[in-house]
Amino acid sequence: MISRRDFLIHTIKGIAVAALPLSAFEIINPKKLFAEQNNGKNVRWVFLVDTYKCVGCGLCVKACKQENEIPYEANVTRTWVERYVLTSDGKLHADTPNGGRDGFIDPRIEIGHGKFEEIKKGDIKKAFFVPKLCNQCENPPCVQVCPVGATYQAPDGVVLVDREWCIGCGYCIMGCPYGVRFFHPKYHTAEKCNFCYHRITKGLKTACIQACPFGARQIGNIKDPKDPVTKIIMTERVGILKEEFGTKPQVYYIGLDKEVR
């Protein structure tokens, strides 16, 4: 029979142990601490998009498709440009014809099925372009759902797809809240933007950054405090997409509007 006194003491002890967060025990794992100091941990690629500078020319999309061997006529692309037009009646009009591959050479808004919506010049309250690409999330949901370990986060933060390993189940395409994934028309495996991994690992800029005449796109290493992109992210007002999903996206936007989804 437990006494009242012992019961209270045990209860207090129990609460104290339960309240200890799991992370409190992690600090005594020297292997993990060592790995964090070690190689591969001093690069973390991030992207910065300035939506004020984007004019919707779509040269980034054109360059991306050719650089990354995405069939040019197929209506899939690793990066795309969206147009947002807000009219004085409070309505939002958004489109991305062909992903913006050929630019926006029509003032009408594409509403699907080959139909277009006319917008009067005087009605436009605000209008702008938003380039989109893979956010290379810190907590990528697409990686969590992969049943075979074909998609993963490389040590430098970029989420890659192993074409040999991918079985084409499409879970990752459904799992991505940003809709950046699609099936490669030729390889029939999941495909996504990987910050032009073959270029950034050689010290080059991504194809979209090089093709952009207006400097709307930039790439940087957030682990380097001297990196100009890091400085902007740390000192200026930047936004991210769908923060509420907890994916910690690593593409930062200057001039993001609440209408952008």
């Binding site: 650089e67 990354n68 907590n139 990528p140 074909a150 993963y152 986060q153 040590p155 073959h198 194809a207």
Partner: peptide
């Protein structure tokens, strides 16, 4: 299972090198 643990780091390590080597740079600048 690599650095980022089972949830994010379960993969074939050789693929990282494959991505950086196998794709040809087309836009030279």
């Amino acid at each position: 299972v690599h650095e980022r643990g089972y949830m994010y780091g379960w993969y074939r390590q050789g693929n990282v090198q494959e991505w950086s080597n196998s794709v040809k740079v087309k836009y030279q600048g």
